[in-house]
Design a protein around this nucleic acid. Sequence first.
DNA 1: CTCAGCCA
DNA 2: TGGCTGAGG
Length: 395
Amino acid sequence: MGIKQLFSIIKDEAPDSIKEGEIKNQFGRKVAIDASMSIYSFLIAVRSDGQQLMNDTGETTSHLMGMFYRTLRMVDNGIKPLYVFDGAPPKLKSGELAKRFQRKQEATEGLEEAKETGTAEDVEKFSRRTVRVTREHNAECQRLLKLMGIPYIIAPTEAEAQCAVLARAGKVYAAASEDMDTLCFDTPILLRHLTFSEQRKEPIQEIHLDKVLDGLNMERKQFIDLCILLGCDYLDPIPKVGPSTALKLIREHGSLEKVVEAMENDPKKKYTIPDDWPFRDARDLFLEPDVRKADHADCDFKWEKPDMEGLVQFLVTEKGFSEDRVRGAGARLEKNMKSSQQARLEGFFKPLPKTDAEKAAHKRKLEAQQEEKKKKQKQDKKDKAAAKSKPRAAV
DNA sequence: CTCAGCCA
DNA sequence: TGGCTGAGG
């Protein structure tokens, strides 16, 4: 899902916008996470012999397993996660949802057939395709987070849009998502691979939107138009338009209105725009999504001590988890809670200069950093100009 | 997906 | 230590 090929475009056109690092660099930071998307991936990935994990009454526990341990691991690394749940889908998305629904039905039929005739792998493949996040999955994860002392919010519509608003307002450092769509919602920073970096040997990517726009030489609106042209969740893609064509078209014409006009007036009819292609609506969803404002009372987030007995009751008594593991995890959670509070009290994150001499030294350091930055920018510009003179996006 | 335990 | 494998529910 998400916007195909956007990452490779950004990598080519705005390499400075991507910083790679380890999870340690994120210590002390708050990050917003799309909860429903996480739950979906847990339901798919947390399995044993191709089946979701279940307690002895047959209730699925994959989502709780995934969320419990992943959250714990982030907290272990000094990260303060904030989960954002999807609300109602926006209207326009209903088309996309209907299509998914249809695929799901087809997959269900395929599953029945596979059970009759196919191999075990076929059955497994089909059962993964039918995965859906239910109201119950969401409710159970919310209950879990409450017991863990981790804050969450239910977005009016799309979680990604809400994550972006919170990041933009400084309530969190960044939105953490694998989905590049989040940039369209105006998050200043997007963190990718936040969790699977430690286990696999992949770095965390920090993508800075301002530098993305600089590198592409585009306004935010043009960037959104580019993303829509690349194929977002809301609209069908235009056949034969891939990343390089999309980029070329937006640079040449400057807006989707002009791109569409040019396509329609093209005597050779090289591109066929789908019949129902409300790109203005899609753009509006990115520009003005239905979100809770960051100064709303719902956005007053607190990271609190876990409720150990509550966790044992829920995960052990009701869901059949191992008591040793749950208590061990709960203890880690509690310990990290304390140490991060301690670090805050000691000014660990923001050591402010106190004496005049320190202030002066601090100022010099900042100036030196600025100077360094300017130099680097100059050099980068030179490099780019030398590499190729790119056509500028029309305004 | 993440953990725990094992082994080089 | 760190990479690998099986279990977790």
